[in-house]
C-alpha cells in the first residue's frame, strides 16, 4: 500500500461538478493552498469542477485559496461559521449578488457535525443556538430540564487537507494550530486527499504522535514548501 500521488493535478483530478468538498484550515492556518490552487487551475483549463459546496470555517480571505475559488465562480454554496475576514470581498460580493448560498453554522456545531459524519452518527443534540435564528426549523428536545437543538451530520465527497508529516500509509501529524478541523474532515469525506510538508516512510512517525491514523486518508501529495495564506495576502497575491 502506497498512498503517495505524483502530482497536485492528479490529487484533484476526480472531483466532479456539484461535489461537496471539505477544506481544512481556520483562516490561513492549515489551509491547503496548493491543493486549492490546483483545483482552480483545473477549473480554468476544463470548466470543472463547478457548482461546489465547500465546507470550511470561513469563506476565504483576499484573492487566494477559497476566496479565489469563490471569485472564479466555482462555489455554489458555503457551509461555514464565519464568512468574514480581513478582506472578505470575494464572498461578500457574490453573496450580496445572490450568486452563492450560505449555510451559517455555529463553529462548535460545525465541528461536531463533521465529527458525527465521520463517526457514523446521523444526528445529535447540542445546546448551541437554542432559541436563536440558527435553530429555526430544527427539532428541539428537553433533556434533564434543558433544551437542545438537533443537528445533522455533515459528510463530503472529498476532503482537501494540509498536514505536516504523512507516511505512505496516510498517517498524519499536524503543525501547531493548523490542525483545527482537519482530523475531523479526514474522517467525514468519502475521499481524503492531503498535502503534506514531508512524505516519510512508515515508522518514521512515532505511533504515539500520529494524530490522524492512515485509515482516514486516501492519498497524500508532498508539497515541501507550502504557501501560507496570511503571507500571500500580506504580499497582495492573487491566484491565478
Amino acid at each position: 500500500m502506497d498512498k503517495r500521488l505524483a502530482s497536485l493535478a492528479e490529487a484533484v483530478a476526480g472531483i466532479p461538478d456539484g461535489a461537496t468538498v471539505m477544506i481544512g484550515g481556520f483562516g490561513g492556518s492549515g489551509a491547503p493552498i496548493e491543493l486549492i490552487h490546483a483545483l482552480i487551475d483545473r477549473f480554468l483549463e476544463t470548466g470543472s469542477p463547478k457548482g461546489l459546496t465547500v465546507i470550511n470555517n470561513n469563506a476565504g480571505n483576499g484573492r487566494v485559496g477559497i476566496a479565489a475559488m469563490i471569485e472564479q465562480g466555482m462555489v455554489a454554496k458555503m457551509i461555514c461559521s464565519f464568512p468574514r475576514s480581513a478582506d472578505p470581498r470575494a464572498f461578500t460580493e457574490r453573496y450580496q449578488a445572490g450568486e452563492i448560498a450560505l449555510e451559517l453554522v455555529p463553529q462548535g456545531t460545525l465541528a461536531e457535525r463533521i465529527r458525527a459524519g465521520g463517526a457514523g452518527i446521523p444526528a445529535f443534540f447540542t445546546p448551541s443556538s437554542v432559541g436563536t435564528d440558527l435553530a429555526i426549523g430544527k427539532p428541539v428536545q428537553t433533556f434533564e430540564g434543558r433544551d437542545y437543538v438537533m443537528e445533522r451530520w455533515l459528510k463530503a465527497d472529498y476532503a482537501l487537507l494540509k498536514a505536516e508529516l504523512g507516511d505512505h500509509l496516510g498517517n498524519l501529524t499536524y503543525r501547531m494550530a493548523a490542525r483545527n478541523f482537519s482530523p475531523l474532515m479526514a474522517s467525514a469525506a468519502a475521499r481524503t486527499v492531503v498535502q503534506v510538508r514531508r512524505a516519510v516512510e512508515p515508522g518514521e512517525i512515532d505511533p504515539e504522535h500520529v494524530i490522524t491514523p492512515g485509515l482516514f486518508v486516501d492519498a497524500i501529495i508532498e508539497v515541501a514548501n507550502p504557501a501560507q495564506e496570511e503571507e500571500l495576502n500580506r504580499a497582495g497575491a492573487c491566484h491565478p
Binding site: 464565519f82 451559517l104 455555529p106 463553529q107 462548535g108 456545531t109
Partner: peptide, 19 residues
C-alpha cells in the same frame, strides 16, 4: 448579527454562551 443587511457570521459565540 446587526440585522439582515449584514453578512451573518457567528463563529463560536453560540457555543461559548452555553458552555
Amino acid at each position: 448579527s446587526t440585522g439582515p443587511k449584514d453578512v451573518p457570521a457567528v463563529g463560536g459565540a453560540m457555543d461559548l454562551v452555553h458552555g
